[in-house]
Design a protein around this nucleic acid. Structure first.
Length: 463
RNA sequence: UCCGGGGUAGCUCAAUCGGCAGAGCGGCGGACUGUUAAUCCGUAGGUUGUGGGUUCGAGUCCCACCCCCGGAGCCA
Protein backbone atom coordinates (compact mmCIF):
# COMPACT_ATOMS: atom_id res chain seq x y z
CA UNK A 1 0.00 0.00 0.00
CA UNK A 2 1.59 3.24 -1.04
CA UNK A 3 1.57 6.17 1.28
CA UNK A 4 -0.88 8.98 0.69
CA UNK A 5 -0.70 12.59 1.87
CA UNK A 6 -3.07 13.32 4.71
CA UNK A 7 -4.91 16.08 2.87
CA UNK A 8 -6.08 13.54 0.31
CA UNK A 9 -7.01 10.94 2.89
CA UNK A 10 -9.18 13.50 4.65
CA UNK A 11 -11.20 13.93 1.45
CA UNK A 12 -11.89 10.24 0.97
CA UNK A 13 -15.24 8.62 1.68
CA UNK A 14 -14.49 5.01 0.79
CA UNK A 15 -14.75 3.76 4.35
CA UNK A 16 -13.24 0.35 4.87
CA UNK A 17 -10.37 0.93 2.48
CA UNK A 18 -6.80 0.45 3.63
CA UNK A 19 -4.69 3.60 3.76
CA UNK A 20 -1.14 4.45 4.74
CA UNK A 21 0.00 7.81 6.02
CA UNK A 22 3.20 9.12 7.57
CA UNK A 23 3.99 12.24 9.54
CA UNK A 24 4.73 13.72 12.90
CA UNK A 25 2.71 13.28 16.07
CA UNK A 26 0.89 16.38 17.26
CA UNK A 27 -0.75 14.84 20.32
CA UNK A 28 -1.47 11.44 21.75
CA UNK A 29 -4.30 10.86 24.17
CA UNK A 30 -4.42 7.46 25.85
CA UNK A 31 -7.56 5.72 26.92
CA UNK A 32 -7.11 3.18 29.64
CA UNK A 33 -9.97 1.49 27.88
CA UNK A 34 -6.97 0.16 26.00
CA UNK A 35 -6.30 2.38 22.99
CA UNK A 36 -4.84 5.71 22.03
CA UNK A 37 -5.79 8.66 19.88
CA UNK A 38 -2.92 10.02 17.81
CA UNK A 39 -3.11 13.19 15.78
CA UNK A 40 -0.70 12.81 12.87
CA UNK A 41 0.35 15.81 10.76
CA UNK A 42 2.34 15.81 7.52
CA UNK A 43 2.06 19.45 6.42
CA UNK A 44 0.15 18.63 3.24
CA UNK A 45 -2.74 20.71 4.51
CA UNK A 46 -3.79 22.52 7.61
CA UNK A 47 -5.36 19.53 9.36
CA UNK A 48 -3.83 16.40 10.72
CA UNK A 49 -5.66 13.09 10.84
CA UNK A 50 -6.82 11.17 13.88
CA UNK A 51 -5.43 7.68 14.30
CA UNK A 52 -6.99 5.09 16.57
CA UNK A 53 -4.23 2.82 17.86
CA UNK A 54 -5.67 -0.18 19.65
CA UNK A 55 -3.97 -1.79 22.65
CA UNK A 56 -3.98 -5.08 20.76
CA UNK A 57 -1.30 -3.83 18.39
CA UNK A 58 1.82 -5.96 18.95
CA UNK A 59 4.00 -2.91 19.54
CA UNK A 60 1.44 -0.89 21.53
CA UNK A 61 3.46 -0.83 24.75
CA UNK A 62 6.88 -0.66 23.13
CA UNK A 63 6.19 1.92 20.42
CA UNK A 64 2.75 3.51 20.43
CA UNK A 65 2.99 4.65 24.03
CA UNK A 66 6.35 6.26 23.22
CA UNK A 67 4.98 8.26 20.29
CA UNK A 68 5.04 11.63 21.99
CA UNK A 69 4.71 15.03 20.34
CA UNK A 70 7.24 15.47 17.56
CA UNK A 71 7.78 11.75 16.95
CA UNK A 72 7.55 10.45 13.40
CA UNK A 73 5.49 7.43 12.42
CA UNK A 74 4.11 5.57 9.44
CA UNK A 75 0.66 4.19 9.98
CA UNK A 76 -1.43 1.79 7.96
CA UNK A 77 -5.04 1.17 8.80
CA UNK A 78 -8.66 1.19 7.79
CA UNK A 79 -10.35 4.42 6.78
CA UNK A 80 -13.28 4.80 9.16
CA UNK A 81 -16.12 7.21 9.72
CA UNK A 82 -15.36 8.88 13.01
CA UNK A 83 -17.93 8.44 15.78
CA UNK A 84 -16.39 11.36 17.67
CA UNK A 85 -16.92 15.04 17.07
CA UNK A 86 -14.35 17.23 15.36
CA UNK A 87 -13.49 15.09 12.35
CA UNK A 88 -15.35 13.19 9.67
CA UNK A 89 -12.81 10.43 9.09
CA UNK A 90 -10.13 8.68 11.07
CA UNK A 91 -7.83 5.72 10.60
CA UNK A 92 -8.14 2.60 12.68
CA UNK A 93 -4.55 1.48 12.70
CA UNK A 94 -3.56 -2.05 11.80
CA UNK A 95 0.14 -1.28 11.77
CA UNK A 96 2.07 1.44 13.52
CA UNK A 97 5.70 1.89 12.62
CA UNK A 98 7.58 4.26 14.88
CA UNK A 99 10.21 5.86 12.66
CA UNK A 100 11.76 8.50 14.88
CA UNK A 101 11.06 9.20 18.53
CA UNK A 102 11.32 12.66 20.12
CA UNK A 103 12.38 12.84 23.75
CA UNK A 104 9.45 14.69 25.37
CA UNK A 105 11.67 16.11 28.07
CA UNK A 106 13.83 17.85 25.50
CA UNK A 107 11.50 18.50 22.55
CA UNK A 108 10.96 22.26 22.63
CA UNK A 109 7.57 22.49 20.91
CA UNK A 110 4.49 22.39 23.05
CA UNK A 111 1.02 21.18 22.34
CA UNK A 112 -0.12 24.61 23.45
CA UNK A 113 0.18 27.87 21.59
CA UNK A 114 3.67 29.35 21.71
CA UNK A 115 4.70 32.94 21.11
CA UNK A 116 6.22 33.76 17.74
CA UNK A 117 9.21 35.21 19.58
CA UNK A 118 9.91 31.86 21.25
CA UNK A 119 9.44 30.01 17.97
CA UNK A 120 12.02 32.24 16.29
CA UNK A 121 14.64 30.76 18.60
CA UNK A 122 13.85 27.29 17.26
CA UNK A 123 13.58 28.12 13.58
CA UNK A 124 14.59 24.58 12.65
CA UNK A 125 11.47 23.16 14.31
CA UNK A 126 8.90 25.90 14.04
CA UNK A 127 7.70 24.74 10.61
CA UNK A 128 5.95 21.95 12.50
CA UNK A 129 3.54 24.38 14.14
CA UNK A 130 0.10 25.23 12.79
CA UNK A 131 0.96 28.87 12.22
CA UNK A 132 4.32 28.49 10.49
CA UNK A 133 3.04 25.60 8.41
CA UNK A 134 0.12 27.73 7.26
CA UNK A 135 2.48 30.61 6.48
CA UNK A 136 4.70 28.30 4.42
CA UNK A 137 1.73 27.09 2.39
CA UNK A 138 0.45 30.62 1.76
CA UNK A 139 3.93 31.78 0.78
CA UNK A 140 4.19 28.87 -1.61
CA UNK A 141 0.79 29.67 -3.10
CA UNK A 142 1.78 33.31 -3.62
CA UNK A 143 4.98 32.25 -5.37
CA UNK A 144 3.13 29.89 -7.67
CA UNK A 145 0.43 32.49 -8.35
CA UNK A 146 3.11 35.02 -9.23
CA UNK A 147 4.52 32.81 -11.96
CA UNK A 148 1.04 31.97 -13.22
CA UNK A 149 0.06 35.62 -13.36
CA UNK A 150 3.08 36.74 -15.37
CA UNK A 151 3.35 33.66 -17.55
CA UNK A 152 -0.32 34.00 -18.50
CA UNK A 153 0.44 37.54 -19.62
CA UNK A 154 3.49 36.60 -21.69
CA UNK A 155 6.07 37.98 -19.30
CA UNK A 156 9.40 36.20 -19.50
CA UNK A 157 10.95 35.02 -16.25
CA UNK A 158 14.35 36.67 -16.04
CA UNK A 159 17.14 35.54 -13.71
CA UNK A 160 18.82 38.73 -12.65
CA UNK A 161 22.31 38.44 -11.18
CA UNK A 162 22.75 38.16 -7.44
CA UNK A 163 26.26 39.61 -7.49
CA UNK A 164 26.45 43.06 -9.00
CA UNK A 165 28.77 46.00 -9.39
CA UNK A 166 26.04 48.60 -9.75
CA UNK A 167 24.18 49.91 -6.78
CA UNK A 168 20.76 50.73 -8.31
CA UNK A 169 21.09 54.34 -7.14
CA UNK A 170 21.82 53.35 -3.58
CA UNK A 171 18.54 51.68 -2.71
CA UNK A 172 20.18 50.97 0.61
CA UNK A 173 23.46 49.89 2.14
CA UNK A 174 24.92 46.91 0.31
CA UNK A 175 26.64 43.72 1.39
CA UNK A 176 30.11 43.54 -0.08
CA UNK A 177 31.11 40.38 -1.95
CA UNK A 178 34.82 39.78 -1.72
CA UNK A 179 37.37 36.99 -1.59
CA UNK A 180 40.11 39.25 -0.28
CA UNK A 181 41.66 38.28 3.02
CA UNK A 182 39.95 40.59 5.54
CA UNK A 183 42.98 40.31 7.82
CA UNK A 184 45.40 41.69 5.24
CA UNK A 185 43.74 43.01 2.07
CA UNK A 186 45.99 44.30 -0.73
CA UNK A 187 46.27 48.08 -0.65
CA UNK A 188 47.03 50.89 -3.04
CA UNK A 189 47.17 54.66 -2.68
CA UNK A 190 43.39 54.89 -2.34
CA UNK A 191 43.01 52.19 0.27
CA UNK A 192 42.01 48.60 -0.34
CA UNK A 193 42.86 47.53 -3.87
CA UNK A 194 39.72 45.88 -5.17
CA UNK A 195 41.44 45.52 -8.52
CA UNK A 196 42.94 42.40 -6.99
CA UNK A 197 39.59 41.13 -5.79
CA UNK A 198 37.79 38.21 -7.45
CA UNK A 199 35.99 40.35 -10.02
CA UNK A 200 38.71 42.94 -10.33
CA UNK A 201 36.40 45.59 -8.92
CA UNK A 202 34.14 46.17 -5.91
CA UNK A 203 31.08 43.92 -6.02
CA UNK A 204 28.00 43.56 -3.88
CA UNK A 205 24.87 41.51 -3.34
CA UNK A 206 22.07 42.95 -5.42
CA UNK A 207 19.56 45.38 -3.96
CA UNK A 208 17.36 45.20 -7.04
CA UNK A 209 17.30 43.49 -10.40
CA UNK A 210 15.60 46.45 -12.04
CA UNK A 211 18.43 47.80 -14.16
CA UNK A 212 19.11 44.35 -15.53
CA UNK A 213 15.41 43.77 -16.11
CA UNK A 214 15.22 46.98 -18.12
CA UNK A 215 17.79 45.66 -20.57
CA UNK A 216 15.73 42.57 -21.24
CA UNK A 217 12.43 44.46 -21.38
CA UNK A 218 13.98 46.58 -24.12
CA UNK A 219 14.59 43.40 -26.09
CA UNK A 220 11.84 40.96 -25.14
CA UNK A 221 9.04 43.43 -24.38
CA UNK A 222 7.98 42.20 -20.94
CA UNK A 223 9.93 40.38 -18.26
CA UNK A 224 9.85 39.77 -14.53
CA UNK A 225 12.44 38.84 -11.96
CA UNK A 226 11.70 36.85 -8.84
CA UNK A 227 14.61 36.32 -6.53
CA UNK A 228 16.40 37.27 -3.34
CA UNK A 229 17.59 40.80 -2.70
CA UNK A 230 19.80 42.13 0.04
CA UNK A 231 19.97 45.29 2.09
CA UNK A 232 22.65 45.87 4.70
CA UNK A 233 20.59 48.54 6.44
CA UNK A 234 20.59 48.36 10.20
CA UNK A 235 16.82 48.36 10.30
CA UNK A 236 15.04 46.74 13.19
CA UNK A 237 11.37 46.76 12.39
CA UNK A 238 8.62 44.23 11.86
CA UNK A 239 8.61 45.11 8.14
CA UNK A 240 12.29 44.81 7.16
CA UNK A 241 14.71 42.01 6.41
CA UNK A 242 18.33 42.03 5.30
CA UNK A 243 17.49 39.26 2.82
CA UNK A 244 14.09 39.24 1.19
CA UNK A 245 12.42 38.13 -2.01
CA UNK A 246 11.32 40.62 -4.59
CA UNK A 247 9.29 40.38 -7.77
CA UNK A 248 10.12 43.04 -10.38
CA UNK A 249 8.13 43.18 -13.62
CA UNK A 250 9.34 45.48 -16.38
CA UNK A 251 7.34 46.36 -19.51
CA UNK A 252 8.37 48.08 -22.73
CA UNK A 253 5.99 50.46 -24.49
CA UNK A 254 4.26 51.17 -21.20
CA UNK A 255 3.62 54.28 -19.12
CA UNK A 256 2.79 54.92 -15.50
CA UNK A 257 -0.89 54.13 -15.99
CA UNK A 258 -0.10 50.76 -17.53
CA UNK A 259 2.24 50.18 -14.62
CA UNK A 260 -0.40 50.99 -12.01
CA UNK A 261 -2.92 48.81 -13.85
CA UNK A 262 -0.51 45.88 -13.79
CA UNK A 263 0.29 46.39 -10.11
CA UNK A 264 -3.37 46.46 -9.18
CA UNK A 265 -4.22 43.40 -11.29
CA UNK A 266 -1.29 41.53 -9.83
CA UNK A 267 -2.09 42.24 -6.18
CA UNK A 268 -5.74 41.36 -6.72
CA UNK A 269 -4.75 38.17 -8.51
CA UNK A 270 -2.55 37.15 -5.59
CA UNK A 271 -5.23 37.84 -3.03
CA UNK A 272 -7.86 36.00 -5.07
CA UNK A 273 -5.55 33.05 -5.54
CA UNK A 274 -4.92 32.71 -1.82
CA UNK A 275 -8.62 33.03 -1.05
CA UNK A 276 -9.37 30.28 -3.56
CA UNK A 277 -6.55 27.90 -2.63
CA UNK A 278 -5.64 28.39 1.03
CA UNK A 279 -9.05 28.30 2.70
CA UNK A 280 -8.13 26.23 5.74
CA UNK A 281 -4.98 28.22 6.37
CA UNK A 282 -6.86 31.52 6.10
CA UNK A 283 -9.49 30.24 8.52
CA UNK A 284 -6.68 29.67 10.98
CA UNK A 285 -5.27 33.18 10.53
CA UNK A 286 -8.76 34.61 10.74
CA UNK A 287 -9.36 32.88 14.06
CA UNK A 288 -5.98 33.09 15.77
CA UNK A 289 -3.86 35.76 14.14
CA UNK A 290 -6.03 38.53 12.75
CA UNK A 291 -9.77 38.59 13.07
CA UNK A 292 -11.49 39.74 9.90
CA UNK A 293 -8.57 39.03 7.57
CA UNK A 294 -10.74 36.98 5.20
CA UNK A 295 -13.30 39.77 4.83
CA UNK A 296 -10.48 42.22 4.30
CA UNK A 297 -8.87 40.14 1.57
CA UNK A 298 -12.20 39.54 -0.11
CA UNK A 299 -12.82 43.28 -0.21
CA UNK A 300 -9.39 43.88 -1.73
CA UNK A 301 -9.97 41.25 -4.39
CA UNK A 302 -13.35 42.69 -5.33
CA UNK A 303 -12.89 46.46 -5.26
CA UNK A 304 -10.72 48.80 -7.29
CA UNK A 305 -7.73 50.42 -5.69
CA UNK A 306 -7.85 54.13 -5.02
CA UNK A 307 -5.47 56.04 -7.28
CA UNK A 308 -4.33 59.54 -6.32
CA UNK A 309 -1.39 61.79 -7.03
CA UNK A 310 1.13 62.73 -4.39
CA UNK A 311 -0.11 66.30 -4.62
CA UNK A 312 -3.68 65.17 -3.94
CA UNK A 313 -2.46 62.99 -1.06
CA UNK A 314 -0.78 65.98 0.54
CA UNK A 315 -4.01 67.98 0.19
CA UNK A 316 -6.04 65.21 1.81
CA UNK A 317 -3.60 64.97 4.68
CA UNK A 318 -3.57 68.72 5.18
CA UNK A 319 -7.36 68.84 5.19
CA UNK A 320 -7.66 65.90 7.57
CA UNK A 321 -7.14 67.95 10.70
CA UNK A 322 -5.17 65.00 12.04
CA UNK A 323 -2.12 65.91 14.10
CA UNK A 324 0.85 64.02 12.69
CA UNK A 325 4.23 63.66 14.33
CA UNK A 326 5.84 64.71 11.06
CA UNK A 327 4.26 67.76 9.42
CA UNK A 328 2.69 67.34 6.00
CA UNK A 329 4.36 69.51 3.42
CA UNK A 330 4.50 69.37 -0.38
CA UNK A 331 8.06 68.43 -1.21
CA UNK A 332 8.63 66.14 1.78
CA UNK A 333 8.28 62.40 1.45
CA UNK A 334 5.21 60.74 2.94
CA UNK A 335 5.96 59.27 6.35
CA UNK A 336 4.69 55.90 7.54
CA UNK A 337 2.01 57.59 9.60
CA UNK A 338 0.81 59.51 6.52
CA UNK A 339 0.72 56.39 4.37
CA UNK A 340 -1.19 54.49 7.02
CA UNK A 341 -3.65 57.32 7.46
CA UNK A 342 -4.39 57.34 3.75
CA UNK A 343 -4.83 53.62 3.26
CA UNK A 344 -6.41 52.80 6.62
CA UNK A 345 -8.44 55.89 7.56
CA UNK A 346 -9.23 57.88 4.44
CA UNK A 347 -9.91 55.03 2.02
CA UNK A 348 -9.71 51.79 4.04
CA UNK A 349 -8.41 49.93 1.02
CA UNK A 350 -5.26 49.80 -1.11
CA UNK A 351 -4.14 53.14 -2.49
CA UNK A 352 -1.80 53.86 -5.37
CA UNK A 353 -0.03 57.18 -4.96
CA UNK A 354 1.61 58.60 -8.08
CA UNK A 355 3.76 61.49 -9.29
CA UNK A 356 6.12 62.25 -6.43
CA UNK A 357 8.54 65.19 -6.28
CA UNK A 358 11.73 64.60 -8.22
CA UNK A 359 13.87 65.70 -5.28
CA UNK A 360 13.55 62.59 -3.17
CA UNK A 361 13.03 59.98 -5.88
CA UNK A 362 15.50 57.91 -7.87
CA UNK A 363 17.44 59.14 -10.90
CA UNK A 364 15.87 56.66 -13.32
CA UNK A 365 12.28 57.81 -12.80
CA UNK A 366 10.74 59.70 -15.71
CA UNK A 367 10.53 63.47 -15.22
CA UNK A 368 7.00 64.86 -15.68
CA UNK A 369 6.25 67.89 -17.81
CA UNK A 370 5.63 70.04 -14.73
CA UNK A 371 9.36 69.93 -14.09
CA UNK A 372 8.80 69.14 -10.41
CA UNK A 373 7.54 65.58 -10.25
CA UNK A 374 8.39 62.16 -11.61
CA UNK A 375 6.21 59.31 -12.85
CA UNK A 376 6.64 57.23 -9.71
CA UNK A 377 4.11 55.18 -7.80
CA UNK A 378 3.74 53.48 -4.44
CA UNK A 379 1.03 50.99 -3.63
CA UNK A 380 -0.03 51.16 0.01
CA UNK A 381 -2.16 48.56 1.77
CA UNK A 382 -3.80 48.61 5.21
CA UNK A 383 -1.77 47.03 7.98
CA UNK A 384 1.49 46.67 6.09
CA UNK A 385 2.00 50.01 4.34
CA UNK A 386 4.08 50.09 1.19
CA UNK A 387 4.18 46.79 -0.70
CA UNK A 388 5.04 48.13 -4.14
CA UNK A 389 7.33 50.86 -5.36
CA UNK A 390 7.72 51.55 -9.06
CA UNK A 391 7.89 54.08 -11.85
CA UNK A 392 7.90 54.82 -15.53
CA UNK A 393 11.59 54.91 -16.42
CA UNK A 394 13.28 57.90 -18.01
CA UNK A 395 13.76 56.89 -21.64
CA UNK A 396 15.20 60.25 -22.89
CA UNK A 397 18.98 60.17 -22.88
CA UNK A 398 19.52 63.87 -22.27
CA UNK A 399 16.97 64.03 -19.45
CA UNK A 400 18.36 60.91 -17.81
CA UNK A 401 21.89 62.27 -17.98
CA UNK A 402 20.66 65.52 -16.49
CA UNK A 403 18.94 63.69 -13.62
CA UNK A 404 22.10 61.76 -12.92
CA UNK A 405 24.12 64.94 -12.80
CA UNK A 406 21.66 66.52 -10.36
CA UNK A 407 21.78 63.42 -8.16
CA UNK A 408 25.56 63.48 -8.29
CA UNK A 409 26.01 60.15 -10.02
CA UNK A 410 28.88 58.87 -12.13
CA UNK A 411 27.63 58.48 -15.72
CA UNK A 412 30.62 56.36 -16.73
CA UNK A 413 29.65 53.74 -14.23
CA UNK A 414 26.21 53.40 -15.88
CA UNK A 415 27.40 53.47 -19.48
CA UNK A 416 25.47 50.33 -20.40
CA UNK A 417 22.30 51.64 -18.78
CA UNK A 418 22.62 54.85 -20.78
CA UNK A 419 23.23 52.78 -23.95
CA UNK A 420 19.66 51.54 -23.65
CA UNK A 421 18.62 55.15 -24.26
CA UNK A 422 21.04 55.51 -27.16
CA UNK A 423 19.84 52.51 -29.12
CA UNK A 424 16.12 52.09 -29.72
CA UNK A 425 14.92 53.66 -26.51
CA UNK A 426 11.21 53.35 -25.78
CA UNK A 427 8.94 54.31 -22.90
CA UNK A 428 8.94 51.55 -20.32
CA UNK A 429 7.88 51.00 -16.74
CA UNK A 430 8.05 48.54 -13.89
CA UNK A 431 7.87 48.04 -10.15
CA UNK A 432 9.12 45.97 -7.26
CA UNK A 433 6.94 44.00 -4.89
CA UNK A 434 8.21 42.56 -1.63
CA UNK A 435 7.02 38.99 -1.32
CA UNK A 436 7.22 38.97 2.46
CA UNK A 437 5.10 42.11 2.68
CA UNK A 438 2.41 40.38 0.64
CA UNK A 439 2.60 37.27 2.81
CA UNK A 440 2.12 39.54 5.81
CA UNK A 441 -0.80 41.24 4.14
CA UNK A 442 -2.47 37.93 3.24
CA UNK A 443 -1.98 36.25 6.60
CA UNK A 444 -2.17 39.13 9.06
CA UNK A 445 1.16 38.04 10.51
CA UNK A 446 2.56 40.99 12.41
CA UNK A 447 6.30 40.36 12.11
CA UNK A 448 8.07 39.83 8.80
CA UNK A 449 10.52 37.48 10.55
CA UNK A 450 7.70 34.95 10.77
CA UNK A 451 6.78 34.87 7.08
CA UNK A 452 10.18 33.78 5.75
CA UNK A 453 11.65 30.41 6.76
CA UNK A 454 14.99 31.68 8.02
CA UNK A 455 14.95 35.43 8.59
CA UNK A 456 18.13 37.42 8.13
CA UNK A 457 18.18 40.54 10.28
CA UNK A 458 20.92 42.49 12.03
CA UNK A 459 22.78 40.13 14.37
CA UNK A 460 20.67 37.17 13.34
CA UNK A 461 21.91 34.52 10.91
CA UNK A 462 21.67 31.33 12.97
CA UNK A 463 20.30 28.32 11.10
C1' U B 1 20.88 54.09 14.43
C1' C B 2 17.14 56.87 17.75
C1' C B 3 12.85 56.56 21.38
C1' G B 4 10.04 53.33 24.62
C1' G B 5 9.24 48.50 26.95
C1' G B 6 11.45 43.99 28.37
C1' G B 7 15.05 39.51 29.68
C1' U B 8 12.96 34.99 36.28
C1' A B 9 11.64 26.88 35.31
C1' G B 10 11.00 23.84 28.55
C1' C B 11 6.64 27.79 27.54
C1' U B 12 3.48 32.08 29.43
C1' C B 13 4.08 35.00 33.51
C1' A B 14 4.03 36.46 39.22
C1' A B 15 7.35 37.96 43.28
C1' U B 16 4.39 44.54 47.80
C1' C B 17 9.36 48.98 50.80
C1' G B 18 15.70 45.54 49.23
C1' G B 19 14.11 40.27 53.39
C1' C B 20 12.89 32.10 52.44
C1' A B 21 12.28 32.57 44.03
C1' G B 22 6.29 31.12 42.96
C1' A B 23 1.88 29.77 39.71
C1' G B 24 -0.38 27.87 35.31
C1' C B 25 0.82 25.08 31.14
C1' G B 26 4.32 21.41 29.38
C1' G B 27 7.42 16.86 31.43
C1' C B 28 7.32 12.59 34.70
C1' G B 29 4.14 9.00 38.02
C1' G B 30 -0.88 7.65 38.91
C1' A B 31 -6.45 7.91 38.26
C1' C B 32 -10.31 8.43 34.72
C1' U B 33 -12.34 8.97 29.98
C1' G B 34 -14.45 7.85 22.00
C1' U B 35 -10.66 11.59 23.31
C1' U B 36 -10.27 16.76 20.57
C1' A B 37 -4.97 22.57 23.19
C1' A B 38 -9.16 16.47 27.64
C1' U B 39 -9.99 16.25 33.11
C1' C B 40 -8.40 15.05 38.36
C1' C B 41 -4.36 13.81 42.12
C1' G B 42 0.84 13.78 42.98
C1' U B 43 5.92 15.05 41.61
C1' A B 44 10.59 16.83 39.60
C1' G B 45 12.26 21.18 37.50
C1' G B 46 16.18 27.85 38.81
C1' U B 47 23.85 30.35 37.68
C1' U B 48 16.70 35.47 37.87
C1' G B 49 20.68 37.83 30.13
C1' U B 50 26.37 38.91 31.22
C1' G B 51 30.10 41.50 34.14
C1' G B 52 30.97 44.79 38.03
C1' G B 53 29.18 47.86 42.32
C1' U B 54 26.16 49.44 46.88
C1' U B 55 24.23 46.59 51.19
C1' C B 56 23.98 42.50 57.01
C1' G B 57 21.05 40.90 52.76
C1' A B 58 19.89 42.22 45.50
C1' G B 59 15.22 39.14 40.77
C1' U B 60 14.41 44.10 43.02
C1' C B 61 18.93 49.73 43.71
C1' C B 62 23.51 51.82 40.70
C1' C B 63 27.13 51.37 36.33
C1' A B 64 28.65 48.97 31.76
C1' C B 65 27.61 45.55 28.05
C1' C B 66 24.58 41.76 25.30
C1' C B 67 19.98 40.25 23.43
C1' C B 68 14.58 40.51 22.45
C1' C B 69 9.88 43.24 21.43
C1' G B 70 7.17 47.73 19.77
C1' G B 71 7.55 52.55 17.34
C1' A B 72 10.61 55.83 14.11
C1' G B 73 14.15 56.42 10.05
C1' C B 74 15.71 53.67 5.45
C1' C B 75 12.63 50.88 2.06
C1' A B 76 10.00 46.27 -0.44
Amino acid sequence: MSRQLIKYVLEREDYGAEVTVAGWVRTRRDSKGGFSFIELYDGSGFSGIQIIADGDLPNYESDVLRLTIGSAARITGVLTESPGKGQRVEIKATEVEAIGFADPERYPLQKKRMSFEALRDIAHLRARTNALGAVARVRNALSYATHRFYQDRDFLYLHAPIITASDAEGAGEMFRVSTLNPEAPPRNDEGIDYGQDFFGRPTFLTVSGQLNAETYALALDRVYTFGPTFRAENSNTRRHLAEFWMIEPEMAFADLNDNADLAEDYVQYLVRYVLDHCGDDLEFFNKWVEEGIIDQLTAVADSEFERITYTKAVELLEESGESFEYPVRWGADLQSEHERYLTEKVFNRPVTVTDFPFDFKAFYMRRNDDGKTVAAMDVLVPGVGEIIGGSQREERLDVLADSMRIKGMDEDHYWWYLDLRRFGSVPHAGFGLGLERVVQFCTGMQNIRDVIPFPRTPRNAEY
